[in-house]
Amino acid sequence: MKLIKSWRWFGEKDSVSLEWLKQNGIEEVVTALHHIPNGEVWPEEEILKVKSKLEAAGLGWSVVESLPVTEAIKTASGLRDQHIHNYKISLRNLAACGIKTVVYNFMPVLDWARTDLHYQIPGLGESMLFDYPTFAAFDVFILKRPGAEKDYSPELLKAAKAVFEKMTPEEAEKLAHNIIVVTQGFIDGVIDPSIEDYKKEFLNHLQRYQNIDDQKLREHLAYFLNEVIPAAEEVGINLAIHPDDPPFSVLGLPRIFGTESDMKWLANTNPSLNNGMAFCAGSFSARADNNLVEMAKKYADRIHFAHLRNTRLLPDGSFYESGHINGSVDMKALVNVFLQEMKLRSSRIPMRPDHGIKGPDDEGLNANPGYPKFGRLKGLKEIESLENELLNKNAR
């Protein structure tokens, strides 16, 4: 039994055609209704429009990534209860259309962060980098978040200042725009890209978390889960929280799902197996103290979806995306955990090749940051090769 080969598709504007996906062995598409504003109900007729298009191309759709959790829910403010009510209606509508798994995240303001969207790995191609000194330079000297310098060691502040002093004003502006706008724009980000003073608006969003620490944010997540999990159980949908990316605090924001202890908290807070996770190897692997194989083994029954990619950690806490097989994660051992879990379930787990290295064949193709067409296909084939090797070995 093999993992379900899936592919993240961003809708009609995606440069990858459904026909190409089918021709290259993709079984299911992972997508969302990106045109519906966060917090509003996903109507059944809109869900069916997408599903019908996918099925006409011979592709399935069982995983939604993502049904966004609004900032009102994360901060327990304003329209929180209305948004949760709408969320439950959307879950029922998705279930009525055959959706089995819904991914979400509980990351405040910023879904993911990288400092270089065009990082060159010698001899391999273009990837993405989170460089700690550069991110600190953005935070302290470009964004000028009040009190930001308190979140960094003297050594890191010194390195950040050196990075900033080498930047031109244009380079500093590009860095800020990439972090705040470019990396968030295609995944329902909180900042309207048309806003002229986007840095000021971003600071306003950060300010809303001034009195929300990890414990308070966990209380908000617990409230959300205890409201929506009964609805998910009723209609047979698995909720899957995506780990924080990176899995540690940035910009002074609380981060509550990036370690094994966070997994334990999630399971204890609501023991229903419908309360699960999207196991993103790339996100979890950006912490040196995370043992991904052991984490996956311990909470395998809650893994409803797998994102498989690798990272290479650097001594100062920086990291870059190193493809799918090579890096800090023992990908073969991790894939084997999923294969063993599928035996126990007698059902398959959907997997998608997450991100990828951009090579020569991807030059000139329009793609969102981290989502090269051929770079992801290469990763998918590498993972499938690992699967075949493990299945052959286990069959002996």
Rank of each mutant, 00 (worst) to 15 (best):
G98A: 04
A96E: 12
V109G: 13
P108D: 13
L124N: 03
V102S: 03
A113H: 10
G125R: 04
A136V: 15
A137G: 10
I121Y: 02
S127Y: 00
T115P: 09
G98C: 04
F130Q: 05
F141V: 11
T115H: 12
L117T: 14
V109M: 13
L117I: 14
V109D: 12
G123Q: 01
Y132H: 12
C97D: 07
A137N: 08
L129R: 01
F138Y: 13
D139Q: 06
N105Y: 11
A113S: 15
L129S: 01
A137I: 09
A113L: 15
T101R: 02
A95M: 08
A95Q: 08
Y132C: 11
L124F: 05
A137V: 09
V102P: 02
L117F: 13
I89M: 11
L129E: 02
R114I: 10
F135Q: 09
L117R: 12
P122C: 00
I89D: 06
N93T: 09
L91G: 05
P108S: 14
I99N: 01
D111G: 13
G98S: 04
K100Y: 02
L94T: 05
V103D: 06
F138I: 09
T134K: 14
P122I: 00
G123K: 01
S90I: 03
I121N: 03
A137Y: 08
F130G: 00
L117Q: 11
L129D: 01
Q120I: 11
S90R: 02
A113Y: 11
A137Q: 08
L124C: 03
A137K: 06
V140I: 15
L94E: 04
E126T: 14
A95L: 08
F106T: 14
W112G: 11
L91N: 05
K100A: 08
R92Q: 15
F106G: 06
L117K: 11
F138E: 10
I89C: 07
P122T: 00
A95C: 10
A113D: 14
V140G: 10
N105F: 10
S90D: 04
F106W: 08
P122R: 01
A95H: 09
P133N: 06
Y104G: 03
I99W: 02
D139N: 09
W112K: 13
L110K: 14
V109W: 12
V102K: 03
L124A: 09
A136P: 08
A137R: 06
C97E: 09
K88H: 08
D116N: 15
E126H: 05
C97F: 05
G98M: 04
K88C: 15
Y119M: 07
Y119C: 05
N93G: 08
F106I: 13
C97G: 05
G123D: 00
T101L: 01
F141T: 12
L110Q: 14
S127M: 01
V103T: 10
